[in-house]
Design a protein around this nucleic acid. Structure first.
Lengths: 374, 374
DNA sequence: TTGAATTTTGATAGCGCTATCACTACGCTC
DNA sequence: GAGCGTAGTGATAGCGCTATCAAAATTCAA
């Protein structure tokens, strides 16, 4: 077999005036210290062309099974990893992914960022951030149109992923979108989420198992489908236990600490207060703890309080909150993966595929739950 | 001027068998929809070679002032942004920057990430994250050595930037390091920080101006120099006001909510409690508010509480905390800049330059401060 | 004013990968 | 068995940028 790079460069006088930057010798490729294995080295070792290696690595063209096998083995042997820069340069696919968020102080933002950044750096994709605050539906539309021109995919955390305007604009622009932590599966866009209904149900069952029956619920912001699902999970568990839900024990909240404060205040000012409060997120649960303390109640001895999401807040307050862990970081990383796959597919001209990826949640038991007093 | 790419390719029979992928016409470059402006377009418009544009953009070679000016104007006119992939491919210098952190639930992590990511994406640099938790000095050393091999620069937030082991290892490996939000300027590594002493002094003066004199102080973690500086700022302001500091009004904290809880508990259990509490960060201030509430005290009517950092916590609790804003996001972006400049300089063989960049802080007045009761 | 030293600019190649097409086999139809 | 698809593979060029060195322009010295 001839070497991949023979020295058959045309020796025109105009060209080759300068010595090549690096001597290329196909029989013994000199490798800079620490430099990565290239596709050429794999190709040479496997006795195929770099193109065939590329096809195998990208797994989408027609390569004979035997060849594919051989190449894959070689790739493993040499521990070859494609160079992301070269790949995105050659593919001319500006594989930039945007993560758009509103409400930057949202407690899980940092976990979201950590996860997305991790996923992006593993896949050698550039992640760009965009904050959309105080926007009207019209400006959101415009912003969506604009971002669609500069990136190849978009990750949408709540509450943005609930906006019909944004989603439809993005979908119309033909770029893949992944909604992260959105409550419900949406027909047009892919999603990575947990089963909010099931999680809330389990949490309620957890409280019931301690003997609680007067369990109050603080609802989440009505503009997010997850809020509804969590409430429904609570209702379902209560119904299954044969305990009618006292409607005055259900308060509307808005995911903010302040709203939790107000809701808990109403709940605990009652003559017969609940023995447990299930707040739809950790911030509101923390507020409930604060109100309880202000009223001289001990948590969990006098009242149990649980939250949802397992944000830093849950472990910041004292006692640390029993809550539902939503693996935001993993979900974000997974979103990047999904997006990348979708982008590649799209480039191959395949049809848009919408997936709904439900990941496992976890009930995290800490110190804010005990049996009801008395 | 001749076009950048003339069609002078050697027409050997072996070559040029296939038509060029894209017709290159120097007089009217066809641009794909949505494709970015390239260095060639800038060069052509400015009437110089791409190389000159590259030099100007990278700002490190000797280019005549007039030429530089012209190119920069053209760059602005065309809104040119270098292609990160191409750049890192050609330079073969994986200009990756690592952001290493411990204590991921640290309240300002998200702002740190947002800022760093923003700076990185503006500079077309890849940002990689690394978490170092539960490490001994030895493993830290090893980790430092390892990371030094895979990135070109490191950003170190506290408390890591206080570790002699980590810093010296990184410096020894010859890669530039920027300490962010470190209290004191360190001789070997660059830093971006606020003037903690001055900020604490101003905050204390703010409390004094309301008529407080029994001002308690909750110290930060002793492993961070910023803690000491904040305390000294408090002391200086008290001394300037001619008020001796009651040592029993100074409690040791560790920047955690829990430690704030304990400190505030001790403070408020006293027979003659302080009329104001200055906590070294927002989490401890939030804890102080919680303790006050539990004791039936109203904030700020009965007691004023202030924090430091202006993290999300400050606006989460009620009442919202008066605090010192530390512009972490801007500081992070600035760190990336500093690092990049340093890396470039290093590549040019220039000497290591250590800078200490002190940025402006801001006293944010919210609802947790009032005149002392009575 | 001339020659040398220096600065500024440009031409060329190549970073590692993939798009594109050419080519080779190997079926298949009629 | 000629013609025609159709998998499988390879050769070539080029993505946008920068390293390198040559060439040109400029400055400086004598």
């Amino acid at each position: 077999m001839r070497g991949i790079y023979s020295n058959a460069w045309p020796a025109t006088t105009t060209f080759m005036q300068t010595a090549p930057r690096k001597a290329r010798n196909s029989s013994s490729p000199t490798r800079r210290k620490g430099a990565a294995v290239t596709i050429h080295e794999v190709a040479q070792r496997a006795g195929v062309s770099p193109m065939t290696v590329s096809r195998v690595v990208n797994g989408n063209a027609n390569v004979r099974a035997a060849t594919r096998e051989l190449v894959m083995r070689t790739v493993r042997e040499l521990n070859y990893t494609p160079n992301a820069a070269a790949r995105s340069l050659a593919a001319a696919s500006g594989t930039r992914i945007a993560l758009i968020y509103t409400n930057p102080s949202s407690a899980y933002l940092s976990e979201l960022l950590v996860g997305a950044l991790d996923g992006a750096s593993k896949a050698a994709t550039q992640l760009v951030l965009d904050t959309w605050d105080h926007m009207t539906r019209a400006t959101e539309r415009a912003a969506a149109r604009k971002i669609a021109q500069s990136v190849a995919g978009v990750i949408l955390p709540p509450p943005l992923c609930e906006s019909k305007a944004v989603c439809s604009e993005l979908v119309a622009a033909g770029i893949p979108v992944v909604a992260i932590a959105s409550g419900r599966f949406q027909p047009d866009i892919s999603g990575v989420r947990i089963d909010d209904f099931r999680a809330a149900q389990e949490m309620t069952e957890h409280l019931l198992s301690f003997g609680h029956s007067r369990i109050a619920f603080i609802k989440g912001h009505p503009n997010q489908t997850a809020s509804g699902l969590r409430y429904e999970g609570y209702q379902a568990a209560m119904a299954a236990a044969g305990i009618p839900v006292d409607p005055t024990l259900v308060q509307q909240g808005f995911f903010t600490y302040r709203s939790g404060l107000e809701a808990a205040e109403k709940l605990l000012a009652r003559k017969k207060p609940p023995t447990a409060i299930f707040a739809s997120n950790d911030d509101m649960a923390a507020a409930a703890v604060s109100v309880a303390h202000r009223r001289g109640l001990d948590v969990p001895r006098d009242i149990s309080v649980v939250g949802f999401d397992d944000t830093p807040t849950a472990t910041t307050v004292w006692p640390e909150l029993t809550t539902v862990r939503q693996p935001i970081a993993a979900m974000a990383a997974s979103s990047i993966d999904l997006l990348l796959r979708s982008i590649r597919r799209r480039k191959d001209g395949e049809a848009r595929v919408v997936v709904d990826h439900v990941v496992a949640h976890l009930l995290v038991k800490r110190d804010s739950v005990a049996a009801p007093p008395g």
